[in-house]
């Protein structure tokens, strides 16, 4: 068999659009092939993929492979695993990448198992070290970064951390789009999606937001949490929340920032009544400018803040809201 080469990047499509981290994974893929004649091949699986395919084709890839079939309208893990397994066997890539999402988190390890190889999860950066690729991945909630290599395997798998790589710039020349029809044997499908329930309709995607105002347990009551909403509104930003705030139902789960929520990298992140537990900080510490409001001088959130203020959020937020209204009116 020929030696494995090229990068195959699976780009997840939701509601007809490629997800951000899927596009970001294409930048990671480019890093891998830079300075070689190897190619970046993006793979899309789903139903009604024309728009998404056009967008990915203009994202600096060399080729887009589209598996478009009504059978793949929903992300069914065993179907997607099986389709990708067939594609990988066909293309023999040296690397298989995907953006790290709750769904690809089941996909890539399964594929790595099928090809008896390794998978590195949540890659933050990639270094070429001689002939080896060193994948950087967070440990212990992000206070430590481990550099990992996969050896003795012709193919390597990795998922890319949201926000770790920039989205690719729109390319002048779009890559070619190839349609593949790949069927999955009925007996390979052993789970059945009975119902896909959307609880959050018309909700914003906080991963896309430039400004996020997050409220934590320290906001105390649903009424007080409204101050967080108000500040977000004045700034034209969106509301984020810590896990305890979500559990109190002050905000929907789609707004959770952190290890078991979203990883966000806005230009401005304001944390109100948030202690700064590692599980939260790992999801927001790459924000460009971080403001912390906490009554406890020792709160760890201050360690990651560009500017922090020690005090009662219920006193500070109303003043900030008024002051910022003035600033906005002047601008």
């Amino acid at each position: 068999m020929d030696q494995n080469k090229n990068v195959l990047a699976f780009v997840e499509v939701v509601d007809g659009k490629p997800v951000n981290v899927g596009l970001e994974s294409l930048t990671a893929a480019r890093t891998l092939v830079e300075g070689t004649d190897e190619k970046v091949v993006a793979v899309l699986i789903g139903s009604g993929l024309d728009d998404a395919a056009a967008k990915v084709a203009a994202s600096g890839v060399d080729k887009v492979v589209v598996v478009d079939n009504a059978a793949y309208a929903a992300f069914a893990l065993d179907a997607f695993t099986n389709v990708l397994e067939q594609l990988i066997k066909k293309c023999n890539p040296a690397y298989v990448l995907a953006g790290n999402t709750p769904l690809t988190k089941g996909l890539l390890p399964s594929l790595a198992a099928a090809f008896k190889s390794g998978n590195v999860a949540d890659v933050m950066s990639i270094k070429k070290d001689g002939g080896k690729i060193a994948w950087a991945t967070p440990r212990f909630g992000g206070t430590v970064i481990a550099s990992e290599v996969i050896e003795k395997s012709p193919i390597q798998f990795a998922t890319i951390r949201p926000g770790a790589f920039e989205k690719p710039a729109t390319a002048a020349k779009a890559a070619s789009i190839e349609k593949e029809s790949i069927a999955v044997a009925a007996d390979a499908l052993r789970t059945k999606i009975l119902e896909a329930v959307k609880e959050m309709t018309e909700d914003v995607n906080i991963e896309d937001a430039d400004i996020i105002v997050t409220g934590g347990r320290g906001m105390g009551t649903p009424e007080n949490f409204k101050l967080v909403e108000k500040l977000a509104e004045v700034l034209g930003g969106v509301v984020g929340a810590t896990r305890p705030a979500i559990e109190e139902n002050w905000a929907p789960r789609s707004r959770q920032v952190g290890q078991s929520g979203k990883i966000v990298t806005p230009k401005l992140y304001i944390a109100c009544g948030v202690s700064g537990a590692t599980q939260h900080v790992s999801g927001m510490s790459s924000s460009k400018y971080i403001v912390a409001i906490n009554k406890d001088e020792e709160a760890p959130i201050f360690n990651v803040a560009n500017v922090g203020i020690v005090g009662d959020a219920m006193k500070i937020l109303p003043v900030m809201i008024e002051e910022l209204k003035k600033v906005k009116a002047e601008a």
Binding site: D129, T143, E148
Partner: peptide
């Protein structure tokens, strides 16, 4: 197949 070759800490703010 997967080995950790080194550890580091993220850059401090």
């Amino acid at each position: 197949l997967t080995h950790t070759v080194s550890f580091s800490e993220p850059a401090q703010k």
